[in-house]
Structure formats: C-alpha cells, structure tokens
C-alpha cells in the first residue's frame, strides 16, 4: 500500500519536474535564438540535415496521399454525380488537415528522431560537457540552430506536401479518371479561402514544427547517457510528438474552424 503510494508520488514528482525542465530548456533555447542569426553557417548546416533530407519523403508521401484522396473521393463523389467537386475535396482536406498533420508525423519520424539520437549521443559521449569545458555554450552552438531550423523547415515542408498533393490529385483526376481539369481548378479556387484555409494550415504546421523540435531536442538533452537511454529517448520523441500533433490538431481545428 505504502509502496504503491510511494510509486504514485514519485511518478507525479518526476512528471512535474520533467515539465519544469522542459519549460526551462525551451526558455533557454529561445533566449539564444538571436545569436543564431549572427552565425548563419550553423543554421545552414541544420537546415540541410533537418529540411533538405526530409524533402524527399515529404514530397513522395504528398504525391501519393493526393493521388489516393482523388481516387477515393472520386468513388464517393460520383455516387452523387458531384465529380466536379473533386478538386475542392482534395485541396480542402490537404490544406486544412492532411498537409500539416501527415507531414508533421513524417517530420517527427524522420527529423525529430534523428535530432534526439544526435543530441543524446553527444551527451552520452560527453561532447556536450566537453564543450562546456571549453567555455562553449552547447545551447548556443548545438541546440538553438537546430531549433530554429526545425521551426523554419516544418511550414515549408507542409506547404510542399499540400502543393504536391493537389498536383497528384490533379494527375489522377484528369489523367486516370478523365475529369474536366477546368472544373478541378476553378471549383477549388472558388471554395478554398486564402485566409481561412491556407493561412490556418500554415499556422498549424508552424505550431507543429515548434512542438516537434522542442520535444526532440529536449528528449535528446534530457536522455540517460547510455545506449539504452538514447534509444528510449528516441522512441519517446516519436510517440510524444505523434500524441502532441494529433491532440494539438484537434484543439487548433476547433479554434480555427469552430465558428463556421
């Protein structure tokens, strides 16, 4: 009895202290963001490993998601004789939901896990402490550039995902299913609103980018410096990022599209 109470107490205390450490970590990272601008070369290298290396998986997934949406949407819409609305359906689902969410999930798997493993290993091999010994602040040199790169890359990747997806939907719609391509684009343009849909989608992806990079960097920085600890942190990054993305997506959707 006492034992289980003790367990519960320790669990609660650990959770709270982790939230506290996470917040402190974020604040410290944010305070160094401006010094990143003074050293653009560090940012460039991180934009390469976080953004450019995620480019292929995002574009290919976007293409196939758009194509599948068009195929599935066509079978449902043709039952109502509304095939002309295919473009609206594909674009609305991509721009509002699938673009930000799926690319964020892929980003967490591709870039988030890599960030955690990298930082975790740096900690395990005492490179971070080594830097501190040389009076180099690891936050300034390691964490902040990665954080900024993640926040910049994510909205760009999500926009690419949606754009390639609508093109994929167009390829299937007009190439495979023989739909009128004028109707595909014009109905889309009539129904998709710049402010309500595109901007909100970009805001969503920016929020996801912020949260994923935060989780990934913090899990790496906070990992137990052993090979097992790093592997656990990497798993936690992917799992926690997925939870946060889906939960936040619900909240953001309710806030953005709730009053229509």
């Amino acid at each position: 009895m006492i034992n289980s109470l003790q367990h519960l107490g320790a669990y609660t205390r650990n959770s709270f202290s982790k939230v506290g450490r996470g917040t402190g970590f974020l604040l410290q990272t944010l305070s160094y963001l401006f010094s990143v601008i003074a050293r653009p070369r560090l940012l460039m290298a991180q934009l390469y490993s976080v953004g450019v290396l995620s480019f292929l998986i995002i574009t290919i997934s976007g293409l196939f998601v758009g194509m599948v949406l068009a195929l599935q949407g066509y079978y449902t819409l043709s039952a109502f004789g509304a095939e002309a609305s295919l473009g609206v359906m594909v674009a609305a689902s991509l721009v509002r939901e699938l673009g930000p969410v799926v690319s964020a999930l892929l980003f967490a798997g591709r870039a988030g896990s890599a960030l955690t493993a990298e930082i975790g290993l740096m900690k395990a091999t005492e490179q971070l402490s080594g830097m501190e010994m040389m009076a180099i602040d690891p936050f300034k040199r390691i964490i902040a550039p990665r954080f900024l790169a993640g926040c910049i890359s994510m909205p760009l990747l999500a926009a690419l995902f949606s754009a390639i997806g609508t093109l994929g939907g167009y390829l299937v719609g007009s190439g495979l299913l023989g739909l009128d391509d004028g109707a595909y684009w014009s109905q889309m343009q009539a129904k998709i609103d710049f402010q309500d849909d595109i901007i909100n989608g970009v805001i969503k992806s920016a929020v996801f980018g912020f949260v994923i990079t935060w989780i990934a960097l913090f899990e790496g920085y906070d990992s137990i410096p052993t090979s097992e600890g790093v592997s656990r942190s990497t798993t936690r990054t992917v799992v926690n990022s997925a939870f946060s993305i889906l939960g936040l997506d619900f909240i953001l959707t309710a806030l953005m599209f709730g009053d229509h």
């Binding site: 721009v95 754009a163 998709i192 595109i198």
Partner: peptide
C-alpha cells in the same frame, strides 16, 4: 517550400 506556398495561394485558393 516558398514556391509551394505561392502555388497554394495563387492556384488553389
């Protein structure tokens, strides 16, 4: 990425 955003703004919306 920026081209994708432009595409979404001009062609889709």
């Amino acid at each position: 990425g920026i081209a994708g955003l432009f595409f979404l703004s001009l062609k889709v919306s």
